[in-house]
Amino acid sequence: MNTACSRSDGRSRGNERMFPDVKTTLNLFGIHQRRVPGDWFYPSHHHPQYEINYVLHGRQLMTVNGKEYEQRAGDLILLRPGDVHSSKSGDYKPFDYFCIHFDLDDRLFLSLLGRMEQVLFSESSAVTRKIRPVLRKLLEQDADAYAGMAGRMRLQATVFELFAQLWDAISEETMHLSTQTYGKVELAHEIAGRLQAVASQTFRHGKFEEERMGIGDIAAQLGISVSYCNRVFREVYGKSPRSYWSEITLHESKLLLADPKYSVQAIATLLGYRDIAHFSRQFKRWTGMSPSDFRKEAQPNGTHRNMPLPPEQ
């Protein structure tokens, strides 16, 4: 693991405050509010995204993986990718519902959602009460308010606010399910946070030291073994800390290569590689392209392609 870096953990120090880096991709699909007649029926289907389904008026009967759930006004259903579901009126009368399909590349958040076995959350549940104000905020706006770039930004900001409330509520709901699992999630989050802080100090501020810090140092700071550190991180994030660090490094190298003021040699040094050849070999292994070729395609007159994530190590 190539981790030449400062030992700072990125928290407040003197007159400086470090804020966490945020590298999250959110995709929103099929957000809609709909009123349907009493004889309406949507057949069984599944999709690769999460879905939040919220009934505004009337009743909905939703079948999820063969089990029926009656959703009354104010009740919420959370569907996971691959859940087979169908829906119809619960009393043969019209009803109104609102739904959001989404996927998010935040593994910690998805791990939390995965621990929640519950599908239906009643109007009085802690989860529904927590996110209801944000749902109302979404619904109070005209659809036209979310048109254009500024509108889409506002929509994303509101949805992230919804996720923040959902995180708080589900964290509280799941604590009693498995204290041991909850502790692992928090520990993995701490490890990821320290890796991100290390990257911020190193890549953004160029604060290198001769003594190199790696996952062993982080494990020692947390009072755990390296093997346990690796195991817990993989359970929560689905990858090793080494691979997570590689993803951070790849992301930073792309940003730097897109900026013509840095030479490839300077970028290799900034990222902690011993020489340009070592950096070039690693970058090509990750992306299939040399740093120079990537830089050409990243320029405004080039066609910037989406590169794959680094392979699991």
Results as ranks from 00 to 15, higher is better:
246 S>N: 10
155 L>F: 06
137 K>M: 11
125 S>I: 00
301 N>R: 06
92 Y>M: 14
258 A>N: 08
90 G>F: 06
200 S>L: 12
43 P>G: 09
44 S>Y: 04
164 A>K: 04
144 D>G: 09
313 Q>H: 10
65 N>F: 01
158 T>A: 03
163 F>A: 11
201 Q>Y: 03
247 E>G: 07
280 S>L: 00
69 Y>S: 05
67 K>F: 10
21 D>H: 14
92 Y>K: 14
170 I>D: 00
135 L>C: 07
134 V>E: 02
177 L>C: 08
248 I>C: 12
97 Y>L: 10
225 S>M: 14
86 S>V: 00
256 L>Y: 08
34 R>L: 13
13 R>V: 13
107 R>D: 14
208 F>Y: 12
288 G>Q: 11
74 G>K: 00
150 A>H: 10
242 R>V: 12
237 Y>F: 15
126 A>T: 04
127 V>W: 00
225 S>C: 13
298 A>W: 01
14 G>L: 05
63 T>S: 03
180 Q>N: 09
219 A>E: 05
179 T>P: 06
119 V>M: 03
103 D>H: 13
35 R>L: 12
293 D>E: 15
50 Y>L: 09
88 K>G: 01
85 H>T: 00
135 L>Q: 02
173 E>H: 01
175 M>N: 11
163 F>I: 09
273 Y>P: 08
77 I>C: 05
274 R>W: 13
79 L>W: 00
63 T>C: 03
209 E>K: 15
15 N>L: 13
100 I>W: 10
134 V>H: 01
142 D>E: 14
302 G>T: 02
38 G>Y: 05
207 K>P: 03
68 E>V: 06
217 D>Y: 01
208 F>N: 13
135 L>V: 10
195 L>S: 01
201 Q>R: 06
294 F>D: 01
183 G>Q: 01
